[in-house]
């Protein structure tokens, strides 16, 4: 296990250098390649984890996932890149929620300590928001859903209240983890929040939203790392979460906007997306 941890440390190094190099034009491509090597190292060494005893599901899942990923990545038009990234990001966030749920289903929830329960709840919450939010962002960019701003009166307040309720449910889940009603309410509400928070945002602002959702999926992965006690997950998730937030900020500045304005601007007055009516 110590050897695995040390190799995880190597993978972390690849990710850090990779992200750094992705930020500059001359080195960006090598940065992406370094990050992918880090991923390969991390995945390969995890297969030697003593906890893993069966490989049927792993082989089948990786083959199917890789086939879909390769197909999508080769097919996509250059002009459709932001929505493609949104889809990939949605799957990543969904995977983190599933990992937390799977760990809960695998073990007896009453055996979890408080730390694991809080992070399980947060991983499901943030991962599910990322999942539906990313697909709504995809739909908006593709034009399946009106590109303009769609919002109910008081949408921002509704969203804030729902988010507060969701956090309350995370707390309740921590106290009573075996309660199926609480668990499913949390899951369902999180999926709904993802839809409702992205739906009111104009199509022109979608890249910023996708960048923010990308940061969320990093945090969701990090939370899943807390659940599993896995350092590589915690570190890589935190790196993406933080770097994603900085990038979101940079993208807002490039558009002369603030993040609050993008997220809650549906009724900000004066400022409208290119197609104001959805």
């Amino acid at each position: 296990p110590n050897v695995i941890q040390l190799i995880y440390l190597v993978a972390t190094g690849f990710f850090i250098v990779g992200i750094r190099r992705l930020g500059s034009p001359a080195t960006a491509r090598s940065g992406n390649q370094l990050a992918s090597i880090g991923m390969l190292i991390g995945v390969a060494v995890t297969l030697f984890d003593q906890e893993i005893i069966s490989f049927e599901f792993i082989v089948a899942g990786v083959v199917i996932g890789a086939a879909i990923g390769v197909f999508a990545a080769k097919k996509v038009q250059m002009t459709a890149m932001p929505e493609m990234v949104a889809v990939f990001n949605g799957f990543g966030g969904g995977a983190s929620a599933l990992v937390a749920w799977g760990e809960l289903a695998r073990l007896n929830p009453t055996m979890f300590d408080t730390q694991s329960l809080i992070t399980t709840g947060l991983s499901i919450l943030i991962g599910s928001i990322t999942f539906t939010g990313s697909f709504i962002a995809f739909g908006k960019l593709k034009g399946f859903i009106g590109g303009g701003r769609i919002a109910l009166p008081g949408q921002n307040i509704i969203n804030l209240v729902l988010t507060a309720v969701a956090l309350f449910l995370v707390g309740w889940f921590t106290i009573d983890p075996a309660n199926q009603v609480i668990f499913w309410s949390l899951f369902g509400l999180a999926l709904l929040i993802g839809v409702l928070t992205v739906l009111p945002i104009g199509g022109a602002d979608m890249p910023v939203v996708i960048s923010l959702l990308n940061s969320y999926s990093g945090i969701a992965a990090s939370m899943a790392g807390f659940v599993l006690g896995n350092n590589l997950l915690i570190i890589s998730g935190a790196l993406v979460g933080a770097a994603g937030l900085i990038l979101t900020n940079i993208m807002c500045k490039a558009m002369n906007r603030t993040l609050t304005n993008v997220l809650f601007g549906a009724f900000g007055g004066g400022e409208e997306g290119p197609s104001a009516i959805g």
Binding site: F15, G18, I19, L22, A28, G31, N32, A35, S36, G38, M39, G42, V43, T46, L47, D49, E51, I52, I53, S54, F55, F57, I58, G61, V85, F88, N89, G92, G93, A95, S96, L98, V99, G102, E103, R106, N214, S217, G218, A220, A221, A224, G225, V227, L228, N230, L232, L233, S236, G237, L239, V240, A243, G244, L247
Partner: peptide, 18 residues
């Protein structure tokens, strides 16, 4: 690229299913 790195949750998925 950062988004691809957040797919690191894959190693958690490997443990859950294996």
């Amino acid at each position: 690229g950062a988004n691809a790195i957040s797919g690191i949750t894959l190693i958690g998925a490997l443990i859950i299913s294996g």
